[in-house]
Amino acid sequence: MSSISVKPEQLLKDLSGLWMELGKAEVEGSDRSAGVLRAVTMTFLLGVEEGDDEGAASEALAQLMHEHPSRAIVLKLSRQADAEISGRAFAQCWMPFGRRQQICCEQIELSAGSENFKDIVSLLRGLIAPDLPVVFWCRSSRIFLHPAFESIALMADKVIVDSRSHPDPHNSIRFLNQQLQRGHLYADLTWTRLTRWRETVSGVFERMDCQAFFQNLNRAVIQYTHTPEPMAVSYLSAWMKSVIGLDFPVDRVLAPSEVSWQISKLRFETALTDVVIDRSEKGIVETHIQHFTARSVFEVQDEARLVREELSILGRDPIFARVLKIASQS
């Protein structure tokens, strides 16, 4: 690992040097060594800000590298506004259990204060791995609001944000909707977190005895736990309307709780009976259909899992586009 002057050629040369060193160390290190596997399937841009839980971001990045070996370029917005651009290149390696070959991914870190952050854009153009997709996970709301954001986003095939961490999530999703209308691919992890809920609702519909139930729905209720009302509630409501009809009444009810999750219950009502999906425990939801109860697993959705789900969708997501349009208008 070395700190170097910030020129793309120099960073790339430094990466090549690292690979040679790694290969050499492997060969010298063991008679049984099978070498180093250099793996790159995309360029992965990660936007973070200094001091904002960088450890969690690095951990998520490391997890993602195992499944999506990438050239990772971390774009760090420094606390100090006038901080100059600095850069370094290094490799992240791991030895899969029971194997003899070390797998390494290359990582570049570029940091600058807000005054110089826009200059990072021109550096990026020379650092992106050729012929492979570019994904930009903008984890920092300050970068999202920075003038350089749109230029970086334009280099990416897909941009991932998390509106729930933004100061004005509704404004953010209006922006996302505009971008989708223009044909750019955007994802919002706040929507991704709802996949398990939506899948459970879909599973209820699969039951033969519930299809008639859904034809006779009067209203749905979304119960949430925190104020202000989370963006997830708007998304879920918009999703139900997109499926059942724009006029379908979806009530939102606050049931304050100290739990870490934002939505605690969904209720679908007809004149005769209800279907309730209840998150009473962290990892489990229960679906109550008359006298029948079924459990399913809601595993902890850490950031790496959410981003992984988005990385599996590199084309248009028409359902998200529909929901985003409704949610951004409400």
């Binding site: 996949t195 939506r198 879909s202 519909f205 699969e206 039951r207 789900e309 997501d317």
Partner: peptide, 15 residues
Amino acid sequence: NPFHDALRFERRIPP
């Protein structure tokens, strides 16, 4: 099933 999301959900298995 109008609630199904083929991009994100697991394959549908009937009861």
